[in-house]
Write a protein that binds this DNA or RNA. Structure first.
Lengths: 233, 233
DNA sequence: GAAGCTAAAAAGTCAGACTTATTCATCACA
DNA sequence: TGTGATGAATAAGTCTGACTTTTTAGCTTC
């Protein structure tokens, strides 16, 4: 989690961002900087900085003589980690979770395949450590500890792929896994089959078997998708 | 392409963004707002807005008493369309092009599979139109016209997938295809085999055959990757 | 009814004064 | 000698008020 409230403009963003992404101000809505500044009790300069940030996320568009217009959802920078967090915290969390899980199902298998050929010895070792950690915490209602290893594991796969675009999805995957553990599914211990798949995946990467690594990851992500289907068919 | 120079702070960004992403200010470099404001001949308020935007892209970090620090590349929001454009315009364009093409190879096949089951009749029709347009412009050095249809085709696949995360990669794919046509490979007419694959893909989606759609798209993206290997082995 | 003019509205810009957090160097004390 | 407290310097952060610029909407005129 990033620092919540780095300055006044950050506070404003923490209030406005979630409101906009939640659809509280529907696309086309017009806000006025001065009015917002009054509402949040900050100076116009601070408000302007906040608007600039929202603008860079393509959440709003600022035009002279008209005001700050909320843009349609299709134009939002939905890969911005901040936007993702705001949306995950809001009402369309289930929808968002599904979108991201589908993205994972596309990216992670390919990343795992690349990791099998590119991973360094240290990365392989770390991967195995994570898998063992998952095994060790997979029983006895230690979901919180399990999550830590799970996140580290998937993050390492993405980093070890050697592709920076994949690597930067680590935070997204972390959010999805955390969200799953905290609010939605998984009230009991994780599926033993899934744990085994992770151990085997670490093996495949270590042995430099991209085909097997990709196939195993596909099984993992299919499982993640099925979890969602069970929850919201 | 977005509007270049929407206000003074935009001009500053158009100068600073490319400089930072090009590594002109290496990670750890410290800039001072006042100095930058002087250099670009703008007021401090304008400069502060620009810094806030760079900060929201995780390109820099602003801290009291120390200044504006350039963050390490690994922390940049590399999915921000603006950042992508800056980097594609800079020195590590080849590296960036490769990263993005690998991303395409992961995402597009899955998107095509989803499109085969989710695409509306109108989307299927548009897809076919695009494919025919590609055929029509595939000979006689009409690369510019070909590109338009190619971009529209891939964009439609991503949109028709029904997943918003995929849909938002349309701009990225457009940048990659445009970059390829304009500067790097493709001095002659496009590969006829690739054109055929697109026609068949439109077919597969129309017929609702996800497996075939995914397989065909994999062939297309493998081709795109090979093009890069030929250029920079 | 179309073209052009005018006035208002809201963002954009600037300058300057002031506040606050953070760092670094100095100094006293153990 | 090392450690902790003190204080000054520094750069970002904030606020205010005046002014500029662009764009729209309404009105006038032909």
């Amino acid at each position: 989690m990033t620092t919540p409230g780095r300055g006044l403009h950050g506070r404003v963003l923490d209030a406005l961002g979630p409101a906009i992404t939640a659809g509280e101000y529907p696309p086309g809505s017009v806000l006025r900087t001065d009015e917002l500044a009054q509402r949040f009790d900050v100076s116009r300069s601070v408000m302007r900085e906040a608007v600039r940030v929202l603008e860079s996320m393509h959440l709003v568009e600022s035009r002279r003589r008209v005001g700050v217009t909320v843009r349609p959802r299709a134009e939002w920078n939905v890969y911005d980690p901040q936007v993702i967090r705001w949306r995950l915290a809001g009402a369309d969390r289930p929808h968002q979770l599904r979108s991201l899980t589908v993205l994972r199902s596309a990216v992670e298998p390919v990343a795992a395949g690349l990791a099998a050929t590119h991973a360094t010895a240290e990365q392989c070792a770390e991967l195995t450590r994570c898998a063992l950690g998952m095994v060790a915490t997979s029983r006895g209602h230690r979901l919180q500890d399990y999550l830590v290893h799970d996140v580290a594991f998937h993050r390492m796969i993405l980093v070890a792929s050697g592709n920076e675009m994949f690597a930067r999805l680590g935070d997204v995957v972390a959010e999805v896994l955390a969200g799953r553990t905290h609010h939605e599914v998984m009230f009991e211990d994780p599926d033993p089959a899934a744990v085994t798949l992770h151990v085997q995946l670490a093996e495949a990467v270590r042995e430099g078997d991209p085909v097997r690594a990709e196939r195993l990851t596909r099984e993992i992500t299919v499982g993640a998708l099925q979890e969602l289907d069970i929850l919201a068919p």
